[in-house]
Simulated assay, not measured.
Amino acid sequence: MAALGVLVVPLGAGWLTYLWADWSLRGGTGTPRFVALLGGIVLAAVALAALGALFRETGTAAGFGLFLLVLGMGAAWVEVADSTTRSEVVSCAVVGKVRQSHHPTFGEGAPQAKTLYHYELDCPGGLFPEFSSETKADPEGAVDGEGGRIRVAYDPDRRMDPVLASENVAIGSPVIPTILLALSALASLVAIATEEREGEGV
């Protein structure tokens, strides 16, 4: 029973995370971002508790399986976010010159160094007075690098950050979360099998 459970829990948790993220981020529900994230956290907590209970049932400690479960569920969430496009696009006037800020890395394991481009915008309805992107836009109609207009894609329900319209594309892939969740199930099965063999050898 425990062996079946450690297969069902990771894969089922990943699928439920995907469905929840898809419904809350892509659907026309207007779900606030914090509610969507809270739902994902609750799903992760339930999945961890279920897998932990199966380990306790067999007397097995399998932290690696639990770790991979969290990574897999997180990757499933990121995959949905990355494959979701913003439904609205607005053309905004750029006020003044584009500013840059440099963010260096701090050694192995730290986020990669990046440059952010900051725009002061005049958008219809006062949307996005300030906007930042890792990609430098080429404002249409700019004179000597100042002014012009850029197109910004955004989610009316503010569930995702705005991006340049040229970057409003789906880039997600289900491959990584599927691999991580499968490895979580495999690691859990190996841990239980190892525990059973050790018990038989006593």
Score class of each variant (00 low, 15 high):
Gly141Asp: 11
Leu19Trp: 12
Leu183Cys: 12
Gly107Asp: 07
Leu25Val: 11
Ala62Cys: 06
Leu51His: 00
Gln112Glu: 15
Pro174Gly: 10
Glu88Asn: 02
Ala50Ile: 00
Ser132Cys: 06
Glu130Arg: 15
Arg99Ala: 15
Ser24Ala: 11
Ala50Asn: 09
Gly5His: 04
Asp122Gln: 07
Ser101Leu: 06
Leu127Thr: 01
Gly126Thr: 11
Ala185Ser: 15
Ser173Lys: 08
Glu108Tyr: 07
Met160Leu: 12
Pro162Gln: 12
Pro129Cys: 04
Tyr119Trp: 11
Leu180Glu: 11
Phe34Asp: 15
Gly145Leu: 14
Leu48Ala: 13
Ile179Gln: 14
Asp82Lys: 08
Gly65Met: 04
Glu108Asn: 13
Val78Ser: 15
Ala44Ser: 05
Ala81Lys: 08
Ile179Arg: 08
Gly72Cys: 06
Trp15Tyr: 14
Thr84Asp: 12
Asn168Phe: 05
Trp15Leu: 15
Tyr119Asp: 11
Val175Met: 13
Pro174Trp: 14
Gly148Phe: 00
Leu164Ala: 13
Asn168Val: 03
Gln100Asn: 08
Val202Thr: 07
Phe67Asn: 00
Thr17Ala: 13
Val98Leu: 05
Gly96Thr: 11
Lys136Gln: 13
Thr29Pro: 08
Ser91Lys: 06
Thr60Gly: 06
Thr58Phe: 03
Tyr18Gly: 09
Val80Asp: 00
Phe34Lys: 09
Pro10Ser: 06
Val8Leu: 15
Gly201Pro: 00
Val175Lys: 02
Ile192Cys: 04
Ala75Gln: 08
Ala21Asn: 07
Val78Trp: 06
Ala113Trp: 06
Gly96Val: 09
Val89Met: 07
Thr194Asp: 13
Ala81Trp: 07
Val78Thr: 12
Arg56Thr: 08
Gly96Arg: 01
Phe34Ala: 15
Leu71His: 03
Val46Tyr: 01
Phe34Pro: 00
Leu68Phe: 15
Val78Leu: 03
Pro156Ser: 09
Leu189Lys: 12
Arg197Gly: 03
Val6Phe: 09
Ala3Ile: 10
Ala3His: 04
Tyr154Gln: 02
Ala3Leu: 11
Val90Gly: 08
Leu66Met: 11
